[in-house]
Amino acid sequence: MLAYVLNRMGRALVTIVIIVSLAFVILRLSGDPAITILGPEAPPQAVEAFRKAWGLDQPIWVQYLKYFSAVFQGDLGNSMRDGRSALAVVWERVPLTLAITVPALLINILIGLPAGVLAALLRNTAFDRLIMTVSVIGFTVPSFVMGLTLALVFAVSFRLLPSGGSGTIAHAVLPVVTMGIIGAAVIARFTRSAMLEVLGQPYIRTASAKGAAWSRVIMRHALANAAIPTMTIIGFMVGSLVAGAVVVESVFSWPGVGRLLVTAVANRDLAVVQVILLFIGFTMVTANLAVDLLYGWVDPRLRTKADRAGT
């Protein structure tokens, strides 16, 4: 088990190094930041001073090493527009994003998982068809259309909820529901096909044939095995929570990290974009690592394989 854990953590670390290096490469590839920020008509002295201030006059590998050590010390430069630390600018938005993404994730899982499992167990019944029909929206309705439709119904027509802004719990309802419905549809569809796949396996037939109770077959044999692919998709959704929030936060003018990313991209505030990029990268890596470790716990085959490979 230890070898498995170390192996996974090593891979997570390598991925983080790659993400940081990529951010550096893209930052440099995108042209001279001095020209980008100051404009092509800036006087040469100003450009020179800017380059010195940001360390752009040093050799590229020195810049790379400096960049690397700065990133791991949490020094990610200042917002090129308002001069404050980019990390602080992003950090103060994180709680707002979590305030809508975490409840949305709970809705995803609490509705999506049981719906998918039931649809698989009741395959080809009216319930199954209903779930599958409804879950199509998860793949065909973009989140901004879903969000605006909900706003049109509940904010404009019935005037029950505010259509945008933040401050009260009522403001959070529509963003949470928008993300909740779409994510639940995705999870339901995925869980159903994972369950169907497992239910068709010979070991399920064996378990039923040897006389195990139906509930035991489902709980011990089917759910445990369907959990593995389902965990992968949930892990990916946890990791991409912020990414999913980009559009929804913009629809409802919710001042979280996603909306900050959109304005930073529009203003080309590269330091802020970079911090958000690294932040999302870290969340993805952490979520994947957590899922990998859970795999090892749920599926004994994986950890014995890694132990054998490790020793």
Binding site: A243, G244, V246, V265, M284
Partner: peptide, 20 residues
């Protein structure tokens, strides 16, 4: 693997920020 691990929306936003 790297491409699959990162939400594409984020990559696209980053490229648009950096390259216009």
């Amino acid at each position: 693997d790297a491409q699959a691990a990162m939400p594409f929306m984020i990559i696209a936003l980053a490229v648009l920020a950096f390259f216009g």
